[in-house]
Design a protein around this nucleic acid. Sequence first.
DNA 1: GTGGTCTAGACCACC
DNA 2: GTGGTCTAGACCACG
Lengths: 139, 139, 139, 139
Amino acid sequence: MFFQIDPDSGVAIYDQIARQVKYAIAKNTLRAGELVPSVRELAVKLAVNPNTVARAYRDLQNDKVLEALRGEGLRVSQEAAAHCRLARQTNMEARVQRVVIEALQSGFVKDEFIGLVESAWQSLARSKTIEKQSIPETP
Amino acid sequence: MFFQIDPDSGVAIYDQIARQVKYAIAKNTLRAGELVPSVRELAVKLAVNPNTVARAYRDLQNDKVLEALRGEGLRVSQEAAAHCRLARQTNMEARVQRVVIEALQSGFVKDEFIGLVESAWQSLARSKTIEKQSIPETP
Amino acid sequence: MFFQIDPDSGVAIYDQIARQVKYAIAKNTLRAGELVPSVRELAVKLAVNPNTVARAYRDLQNDKVLEALRGEGLRVSQEAAAHCRLARQTNMEARVQRVVIEALQSGFVKDEFIGLVESAWQSLARSKTIEKQSIPETP
Amino acid sequence: MFFQIDPDSGVAIYDQIARQVKYAIAKNTLRAGELVPSVRELAVKLAVNPNTVARAYRDLQNDKVLEALRGEGLRVSQEAAAHCRLARQTNMEARVQRVVIEALQSGFVKDEFIGLVESAWQSLARSKTIEKQSIPETP
DNA sequence: GTGGTCTAGACCACC
DNA sequence: GTGGTCTAGACCACG
């Protein structure tokens, strides 16, 4: 598959996997009805413990994003796309809100902060390897 | 004192304390040479175990932000302000960068994202209790 | 493992542990990439509270000597050896300097003092249990 | 008086005071029968809390180094010189032994260590302000 | 199994 | 009164 995990980012690996699967669905890189890679296969590709992949897939099943086909594998569900797009929006709002609260608490003014955001966006958006960027999260 | 901790935010309490002390110094609410509240006193105010406050203060001593005066208390060091202001900037840049990377990865376009940020800022900035807001961390 | 702590030496136990880990790395008894004993395991061996070992390990992580592998253990970092060898040298210089200052202040002459050092070295070096010697600290 | 204390050395201030009094007696700078400065006077000179000086003097009385003359002050006792010279020797032996043990534990060889001691001695002995040197101790 | 965090309560040295 | 250390035991997230 196409994504990357960073074991030192402070975010649980299973969480990184689950999120990137959701993003892929939200972006239509992965579509309803498709099979995701098997636990073992993905574990090998990401150089990660199979248990960790299994946990990510389990969480995705709980979220009704994946569904098990006995003896076949895990399939992206029909409702997944809607769910993932919604999740994308909600998660991003929550994340933005947290950072904004921190910024307010530490005394930033609005323009100073927006400036920070824009300059980060500029510098990151032009990097062509953006999709390979790991996501340094935060402890 | 002036700050609040949220035991359910997912951020370690000692970390919330340490950060808010740094912010207070960066904002000049707390100045070089002043004594911070005693471990026991702050523990009572925050309804937290004294060991937890002690751990925050110990970390701040490692960062050269506080210095111990035996039998007297803990004092804000002279270098603290510079360090804390720098940390404020650097930390915020790092946090913003992480969110921006996530946004890019999940397919946001710039204006959509900036819009999210601005609306979050608007709604949070006008809340008068902003300083009492807990910092809901990690989704 | 191979080291000993003395709870009555006046030196904090966590500090004795951290120092001995560093020494082991400086001496190549412990090498980059290896896992150190788990917190609980070492706590049992040293007959010490696990929190105390955890504190030592935490300090070593702050010093970039150890790094955490989630759910796996703590690993000696790559930079550790250099750091520890440097620390060994610097610490010993500092300790020697303090004693020398005391000696000068209390009116020793050089040969008298060197004699003291040599006789101490002789008598301690031939004891075969040297590595098991506790470090009686502070008079 | 002639000595210096370092509140950040990790050694208790009262202990620094008591030791320096003993050293002065061992060196005959202070002689049997002389009065030591009053608690208040010394406290002012050293910029230290009078309680701290009082504690040092109390310890020295326990050691029979000083004796109280009601309404007059504290006098260096007759036995003091012998006691202090003995203490000088014994303390230095103990300190040297501790450092030597550490050196052995951290894998120094004899010549390497003696070299360290000699170079420290050289560089410190020629400093003219040697008597004003504070004694950085260390915990 | 691993480390990380927190609480509770104790004892110490220092001022 | 202050900070520092240690113990005991609990719970959590992670692999």
